[in-house]
Structures are given as structure tokens and as C-alpha cells.
């Protein structure tokens, strides 16, 4: 008993030591970006070391960036694009994944490979066909046009991802309601979806981050400044402030806040020990 306890203590110390070291190492670039974001331009240029600890903290850089490029509108625009895209992607891909994970039918494997193969080509190559297609159905320069594209382009990855995770669901959990005569859709919606919460949450976080950070499709499909997302705002800002490293850095940090909040909100589903049957020791 004592042995167990002290082992656990060593393990705990090891965990904190190793984790702290790892995180500290991995976040060096971000810490540097943060330092840069709170310095004055004079300090960045004057010391010749862009990475040094700030002498004076200029948090007003953030306010300046926010107002000078009208960040508020960009953030709202991005939310309008990202939220429906993520929702749509999750719904559609979970439907497809359910079919591919639980039904044996002739074309199953071929369709799975098809969903994967759609991801293989670098999307930059599709800029022109996609532009023409959206133009021809009259969705150019609308949010709906961008949202539909995000949903379609993320379907490949999400279907593949969910199909693999759905298969982890214990067979007995699916079989019992079937015997009780539940409909296929009910099993999908009331059994599988709740059980797949951790993977759905992980997927939602990843998708939110990607769509939030997308530049390409917004560039191709939106022209109006009124509709543009944060990434395009920052791209324009880099033209304006290219040599103002502090502005670029603080704009970047503002842009990462929402994906971070989203992660925080969803990460409780990644926490082990909360899953069914876990016994606290």
C-alpha cells in the first residue's frame, strides 16, 4: 500500500516536470510572439533582439489593432462562416460514417476510399473550378457559398475519422435496441451519437480551428470587405503594417482567442475518467 502511494507520488512529480518542460519548449514561438505584441516598435528595433523580454508592456497595441483594422467586424464575419460550417459538417459526416461503419453493403469500401481520395489533392488546385461552379449557381460573394464549400471539403476527413471511431462502440450497445425494434435513425441519433461524444467533440474542435483559419476559400469566394473573415483582414493588415511586427503579433493573438475558447469549452470531453464505467481510485 505504502509502496503504491510513493510510486504514485514519484509518478506525479515526473508528470509535472516532464509536462512543464515539454509545454515550455513547445510554446517558445508563442511566447516570443506575445513579447513582440506588447513592445513598442522602438524597443523591437532598438535592442536588435526581437525575442527579448519586454522592458515596458504596451497592451494598447491590442486596442490599436482592434480599432485600426476594424477587427470586430472580421471576427463576427468569421463566426457567421465557421459555426454553420462546423455544424453542417458534423451532421452530414456522422450520417455517412454511420452507414459506412455499421452496414455491410457492396460498395462500402469503395465509398470509404472515395471519401479519403477527395482529400488527396491540394485544394489550391481547385480554386478556378470552384470559383466557376459557385459563380454559375449564383452564390459568389455570399456566406452560403463559402459555408457550403467548407462543409463539402471537410466531409472527407470527418467521415473517415468518425467511421473509424464509431466502430469502437461496443457491439452489444447497438444490438440491444435493435432487438427492441428501434428504428435505424433512432439508433444513429440516440445511441451512437451520444456514445461518440468524445470523438465528435475532438472533431468539432479541429474543424472549428481549420475553418476559422481558412484563407483560401474566403479569398476565392468573397470579394466584399463587408463579408471577409479575420484571416483576410490580417492578410491585408500585413500589407499595411508589414514592418510593424508588434501590430502583426497582437492581431495574431486576437485571432487565436476564439478557437481557444472553443477548445476550452469542448475539452471536458477529452478528459478521461469521465467515461462510462471508470472507477475513481
Amino acid at each position: 500500500m505504502f509502496n503504491e502511494k510513493s510510486k504514485r507520488r514519484v509518478l506525479k512529480a515526473g508528470f509535472y516536470l516532464l509536462s512543464t518542460a515539454l509545454v515550455a519548449f513547445w510554446l517558445i514561438p508563442l511566447v516570443l510572439a506575445f513579447f513582440t505584441s506588447v513592445k513598442s516598435m522602438d524597443e523591437i528595433m532598438g535592442t536588435g533582439a526581437m525575442w527579448a523580454f519586454p522592458k515596458s508592456w504596451r497592451f494598447d497595441n491590442y486596442a490599436k489593432v482592434w480599432s485600426s483594422i476594424g477587427m470586430g467586424r472580421y471576427v463576427l464575419n468569421t463566426i457567421f462562416i465557421t459555426v454553420p460550417s462546423v455544424l453542417g459538417t458534423l451532421v452530414l459526416s456522422s450520417l455517412a460514417a454511420f452507414a459506412l461503419a455499421f452496414y455491410g453493403f457492396k460498395l462500402n469500401r469503395m465509398i470509404l476510399v472515395m471519401f479519403i481520395a477527395g482529400m488527396l489533392i491540394p485544394f489550391q488546385m481547385l480554386m478556378i473550378p470552384v470559383f466557376r461552379f459557385t459563380d454559375s449557381i449564383g452564390l459568389m460573394n455570399t456566406r452560403i457559398g463559402v459555408i457550403l464549400f467548407h462543409i463539402a471539403f471537410q466531409l472527407g476527413f470527418c467521415t473517415f475519422f468518425l467511421r473509424n471511431f464509431f466502430r469502437q462502440v461496443p457491439f452489444s450497445l447497438v444490438e440491444a435496441p435493435r432487438i427492441d425494434g428501434a428504428s435505424d435513425f433512432r439508433i444513429y441519433w440516440q445511441i451512437i451519437m451520444p456514445l461518440a461524444k468524445p470523438s465528435l467533440a475532438a472533431l468539432a474542435v479541429l474543424e472549428f480551428t481549420w475553418i476559422w483559419n481558412d484563407l483560401l476559400w474566403s479569398l476565392v469566394l468573397l470579394q466584399s470587405d463587408r463579408l471577409k473573415p479575420v484571416t483576410l483582414g490580417l492578410a491585408n493588415m500585413q500589407g499595411e503594417f508589414i514592418s510593424y511586427y508588434n501590430m502583426t503579433a497582437s492581431g495574431s493573438i486576437i485571432a487565436m482567442i476564439l478557437p481557444l475558447v472553443f477548445f476550452l469549452a469542448f475539452q471536458r470531453y477529452f478528459v478521461s475518467g469521465m467515461t462510462v464505467g471508470a472507477v475513481k481510485g
Binding site: 463576427l76 464575419n77 463566426i79 457567421f80 454553420p84 460573394n141 455570399t142 452560403i144 459555408i147
Partner: peptide
Amino acid sequence: ALVVLGACAPA
């Protein structure tokens, strides 16, 4: 609600 309103904004 915001999203629906926003997505419908005419260009």
C-alpha cells in the same frame, strides 16, 4: 440566431 441573420444578409 446571429448566424442565420448574418448568412441571409443580401449582397
